[in-house]
């Protein structure tokens, strides 16, 4: 059972650039990803949007495995700023977890 946490949702969606709510969950991003991380980015954003902080942090390696190459974005049907969204999650982790 995962508790939906609106406070976390607010934190991750604080950036104006973070537009993962527009994701339609089509999965094209995962299909074209050169890294072949099946988690990225569709499911990762869902965890973030649902406020499941533990789940997001559990996938920290995946968040840093992203090449930011934007191949997914070039194929995204919903114009989600995927690379920027991933980068924003890194910002969150850098600050809240790594305390950089």
């Amino acid at each position: 059972m995962a508790k939906v946490n609106p406070a976390f949702i607010e934190k991750v969606t604080a950036s104006e650039e973070f537009n993962a709510t527009e994701c339609m969950n089509c999965g094209v991003c995962s299909a074209v990803c050169p890294v072949e991380i099946d988690l990225l980015p569709r499911k990762l954003f869902r965890y973030a949007l649902l406020g499941l902080e533990d789940k997001v942090l559990e996938h920290t390696p995946a968040i840093y495995q992203c090449l930011l190459c934007k191949l997914c974005e070039a194929n995204c049907t919903a114009d989600v700023h995927i690379a920027e969204n991933v980068r924003f999650l890194r910002t969150y982790i850098s600050k809240e977890v790594y305390k950089l």
Partner: peptide
């Protein structure tokens, strides 16, 4: 609200 989210492979969510 307790619901299994299909898009996270059935993660059971608890939404207040």
């Amino acid at each position: 609200i307790l619901v299994k989210d299909v898009l996270t492979n059935g993660e059971e969510l608890d939404i207040e």
